[in-house]
Write a protein that binds this DNA or RNA. Structure first.
Length: 429
RNA sequence: GGAGGGAUGGCAGAGCGGCUGAAUGCACCGGUCUUGAAAACCGGCAAGGGUUAAUACCCUUCUAGGGUUCAAAUCCCUAUCCCUCCA
C-alpha cells in the first residue's frame, strides 16, 4: 500500500512512476472521493464532538442533581444524524481503500523500462554451461529412473503434483537441509518454523490479497461458512514469516531481523494452463527455503544486494551456472519496488530458468501490516522496510542438479556440497 | 463431552456506566546530585487519523464484530485466542 499522504500530495508523481509498470488508475475518481471524504469526515467528527460534550454535560448535571430532561431533549436526534454521517463516511472510505489497495508499489529509479520478461536486463553471469559429449535427457526422463513419479501423483491428487521415492526423495530433502544450514551458519539467519495456512489479514499484509485471491488455495474450516474463518495455503513462506512481526514496534537494537524458513508453497497457477506442464518446473505444491529481512529504511537497498548474494551463494556452492537479471517495470511483482531474479542454467531446455526472486518492498508491506520501529525513545515510530528472496526454490534446484549433473548412463553425480547430506554417496544410479 | 476464568499502553497490572486515553510499577528519555556511575529525587513518555502555514484544536482506538445508552474499557450478544477444573 502506498502512503495516502503521498497520494494526496504528489498524485502526479505517483502516476508518472507507475507508468514504468504500465499501470494506471482513475485519478479523477480518487480525487473526487478524497474531496467528499474530507467534507464527510469533518461533519462526522463535528457531530461526534457535539455528542461527547453534550454527554459530558449531562453527566455533570446529573451529578449536581439538576433536571436533565431538557438536555436529553437536545440530543434526541443526534444519534440518528451521527449514524447517517458515519455510514456515508464509511462508504467513501471503503471506496478509497479499495482503490489504494489495488495500486502496486512504485518502482525504484534503478528499475529498467520494459513490458515483459524479455525486457529484463542481465546484470551478471556466473559459471559456464556444461558441455556434454552425449545426448542429454531432461529432468523428467532422468528423474523417473530414480523415483520421481508424476503419474502416481496425478492418480492420488491431480496434475501439477509430484511423488518422489528413494534417493530422489532423499536428494530433495538433502537440498532443503543444506540450504537451511548454509543460511543459518554462513549468513546469520534465524530459522523459523511457521504455519502453512494463514488468514486473510496476513495475505493482505504482504500484498497477495485483495487482488490475487485466484492464485491461492482457499480452505473452509469444517462446518463454518463465514469468510472470517477461511484459511489459505501459503503461496510462499514470505507471508507467515514477514507477518511474524506485523503490528509490532521493533527496537533499533534488534534490527535487522533475518529469518530463514523452509515451507511448502501452494499455488493455484490460475492463468498458467498449458504452461510448463511437463516436469517439476510449475507445480501446485513445491518446497522453498525463503530468506526474509526486516531493515531500517536507509539500509534496504544495500540489504537487497546482500540478500541476493546469499541466494547466489547456494548456486555457487552447488556449482550451478546461473545469471542474475533485474526485472523491468512491466515484470515487477505487485508489492515489489525492485527485484532481482536468479536464473539457473537448464541444459535440456538450453536456457536459464528462474530459481530465485529477491525483492525489496520498501515500506509497501510494512504499511499494510503496521510494522514499525522507533529511532529513539523520543521519536515517532516509523515504518520499516521488508525484503525477501528464495534461497532457493527446492524443486527447481533439484531439476537443475538432475540436468547439470547427469552422466551418459543416466546416473546423477552428487554435488560435493551435498555429500554429507546424502550419506557420502557419490552417485545416484 | 461438561463447568468456569481471562484478553487493557513496550512489559506487568488496576479500573467494571459519566472529570478514565486510562491509576500504579517496571522499562525508556531528560534533569538535579556525583570526579564518573549507581542510588535517591524531579519531570516526560500509547498509537492512528482529521483541520491548519503553524501554534493549537478535534476524532478514533482498552482482542474483533454487533447491540443497549444522552454517555461503554466498564452492561448484553457473537466470534477468535489463552488459561483452569471436572469427565
Amino acid at each position: 500500500m502506498l502512503s495516502k499522504k503521498k497520494l494526496k500530495n504528489d498524485l502526479e508523481g505517483v502516476v508518472l512512476a507507475l507508468k514504468k509498470r504500465n499501470f494506471s488508475f482513475d485519478t479523477v475518481e480518487l480525487e473526487e472521493l478524497e474531496g467528499k471524504r474530507k467534507v464527510n469526515q469533518i461533519e462526522t467528527q463535528d457531530l461526534q464532538n457535539l455528542r461527547n460534550t453534550q454527554s459530558k454535560s449531562i453527566g455533570k448535571a446529573k451529578a449536581a442533581g439538576e433536571n436533565i430532561e431538557p438536555l436529553l431533549a437536545e440530543v434526541a436526534d443526534l444519534g440518528g444524524r451521527l449514524d447517517k454521517a458515519k455510514s456515508e463516511l464509511q462508504v467513501i472510505q471503503d471506496k478509497i481503500n479499495n482503490i489504494v489497495m489495488s495500486i502496486p508499489n512504485v518502482p525504484h529509479e534503478s528499475v529498467p523500462e520494459g513490458d515483459t520478461e524479455d525486457d529484463n536486463i542481465e546484470v551478471m553471469k556466473w559459471g559456464e554451461p556444461m558441455k556434454f559429449d552425449f545426448e542429454i535427457k531432461d529432468h523428467v526422463d532422468l528423474g523417473e529412473k530414480h523415483g520421481l513419479d508424476f503419474a502416481t501423483a496425478a492418480k492420488i491428487s491431480s496434475a501439477r503434483f509430484s511423488v518422489m521415492t528413494g534417493k530422489m526423495a532423499k536428494l530433495h530433502r538433502a537440498l532443503t537441509q543444506f540450504m537451511l544450514d548454509w543460511h543459518i551458519e554462513n549468513n546469520g539467519y534465524t530459522e523459523a518454523y511457521v504455519p502453512y495456512m494463514v488468514n486473510a489479514q496476513s495475505l493482505t499484509g504482504t500484498g497477495q490479497l485483495p487482488k490475487f485471491e485466484e492464485d491461492l488455495f482457499k480452505t473452509h474450516l469444517h462446518g463454518e461458512e463465514g469468510e472470517a474463518r477461511a484459511l489459505y495455503l501459503i503461496p510462499t513462506a514470505e507471508v507467515p514469516v514477514t507477518n511474524l512481526m506485523s503490528g509490532k514496534i521493533i527496537n533499533e537494537s534488534d534490527l535487522p531481523l533475518k529469518f530463514v524458513a523452509h515451507t511448502p508453497c501452494f499455488r493455484s497457477e490460475a492463468g498458467a494452463y498449458g504452461k510448463d506442464t511437463r516436469g517439476l518446473i510449475r507445480q501446485h505444491q513445491f518446497e522453498k527455503v525463503e530468506l526474509v529481512q526486516i531493515t531500517k529504511p536507509e539500509d534496504s537497498y544495500k540489504v537487497l544486494e546482500e540478500l541476493t548474494s546469499h541466494a547466489e551463494g547456494i548456486l555457487q556452492a552447488l556449482e550451478l551456472p546461473y545469471r542474475k537479471v533485474i526485472l523491468c517495470g512491466g515484470d515487477l511483482g505487485f508489492s515489489s519496488s525492485k527485484t532481482y531474479d536468479l536464473e539457473v542454467w537448464l541444459p535440456a531446455q538450453n536456457t536459464y530458468r528462474e530459481i530465485s526472486s529477491c525483492s525489496c518492498f520498501e515500506d509497501f508491506q510494512a504499511r499494510r501490516m503496521q510494522l514499525r520501529w522507533r529511532k529513539s525513545q523520543s521519536d515517532k515510530p516509523e515504518l520499516l522496510h521488508t525484503l525477501n528472496g528464495s534461497g532457493l526454490a527446492v524443486g527447481r534446484t533439484l531439476v537443475a542438479i538432475l540436468e547439470n549433473y547427469q552422466n551418459a548412463d543416466g546416473s546423477i553425480k552428487i554435488p560435493s556440497a551435498l555429500k554429507n547430506y546424502m550419506g557420502d554417496i557419490e552417485l545416484i544410479n
